[in-house]
Design a protein around this nucleic acid. Sequence first.
RNA 1: CGGGGUGUAGCUCAGCCUGGCUAGAGCGCUAGUUUUGGGAACUAGAAGUCGGAGGUUCAAAUCCUCUCACCCCGACCA
Length: 506
Amino acid sequence: MSGKNKNAISPLRSEDYPEWYQQVIKAADLAEVSSVRGCMVIKPWGYGMWELLQRELDDRIKATGHENAYFPLFIPLSFLQREADHVEGFAKECAVVTHHRLEEKDGQLVPAGELEEPLIVRPTSETIIGESFAKWVQSYRDLPLMINQWANVVRWEMRTRLFLRTAEFLWQEGHTAHATEEEARAEMDTMLEVYRELAEDVLALPVICGEKTEGERFPGATTTLCIEAMMQDRKALQAGTSHYLGQNFSKASGIQFLNKEGEQEFAYTTSWGVSTRLIGGVIMTHGDDDGMRVPPKIAPKHVVVIPVVPKAELEGEVFEYADKVAAALKSATYDRQPVRVQVDKRDIRGGEKTWSWVKKGVPLRIEIGPRDIEAGKVVLFRRDRGPKEKEFVSIDELPNKIPGILSEIQDGYYQQAKKYREENTRTDLSTFDELKEFFTPKNTQKPEIHGGFVRAKWCEDSEVEKKLSELKITIRCMPLEQSGDTGKCIVTGKEAKKDAIFAKAY
RNA sequence: CGGGGUGUAGCUCAGCCUGGCUAGAGCGCUAGUUUUGGGAACUAGAAGUCGGAGGUUCAAAUCCUCUCACCCCGACCA
């Protein structure tokens, strides 16, 4: 296993993208499947990314006037039934609790004590939060009500994939109630913008902001806005959604207030959420054939210091020096926080140690050996460069230099992803045949990475969406930035006003 | 829920068709020796009620029945 040109991950992205994705998660030690059907264990390196994402987003949620609260995991079955579209959307994937006690019978524990009314494990919390909102709101003076909760939810999915679709996942769900439609719609816009900023500035994921078609809308919503990202297999990933719910849920839950005119009126509500799926998006956007590449802003460690100990008796000296360098680095600031540094003193072989960090995607590696100590230098490796590309930096300059390099990496990942999306977005297709050609792989046995985003006109006829399913594509969204031109629908050829993004999706 | 497949050591799998010695390999793990500014080599070792239950048989990982779990392809989805 000398393999100078060998990549750390097998298969390569180009060979088998879904398998590559699984292997990266394993190699980077982000998560693993648990013995519970469809559920995952998020391991420290993956959870660390989530915690940092959480912190960034939580700050922004609070800065836009929201407060955190917590509502029950269990929802009475009857609550779900209050909103017709909502039931239809979620009923099939609900986990249901029907008993509350176990009794021993023939050596086996069996459920006893049947509940009078079954409880469902929340797939989302509109109904249970609506119940509270109804109590909290009496007057227009109680509005707006702006609440967020960090929670886990359960959706009994048929097919699961780590981070992208698991039976249980972590997310945040915001729920707000307003006195006017205008205000509620403005809230929906605000939160979409928060998500866009989170995705682009923190996760380095370029996204398209748009509106969902009726067919793709959240069950029970009047309007659904979304951010859509392109993965390296050119499929779209819905990375976040913000919904204007009109009065649908306030009517279902009885969220009523007395307005200034002294009349009872139903509130206008919104909800919005992002989940651990975003971590999947980060993996599929930034990962390469050597494993994960973590954007510095959510890297649990920015820098790992690897002491190089050629002879056992030098260990003490090298470790001590590595600790000193680490301490100096921690005094530097990146993204308004101290640089996160770890000294890797594990008793394993050097090559293995180095590669474990390459696969985890830590932005910077620093190696320090006796020769470097003598010369007052360290060897710096950047994850956005080749794994062997080194740079010597004097120890004195190091703390000043690191934040700038982290910014460069963060920005570089974003630019690279954006370039990839642009290179794989077509705006010049105008007929269904061209669309079909674009979204059909050349190799039908083992489809190669193909397709991408197509931006084209759509006549807003829902029949179009049915026809698109032949090509296994959907309308991802109607971008918020519309050209305003009229043209011909790419599917029907009819007069069309709306620009839409067509793509295969996760 | 339809169609296909797989359950054998921590992981990846061979063995099953055609029943028969003490159930194997690679990786990983443990120890020792050598090596090491780089994803080491050698030697030794630990590790398995062959998914579960029942049946056929002198004899079952292997054949039969039932059952459970997981994976892949569809329909559903943050």
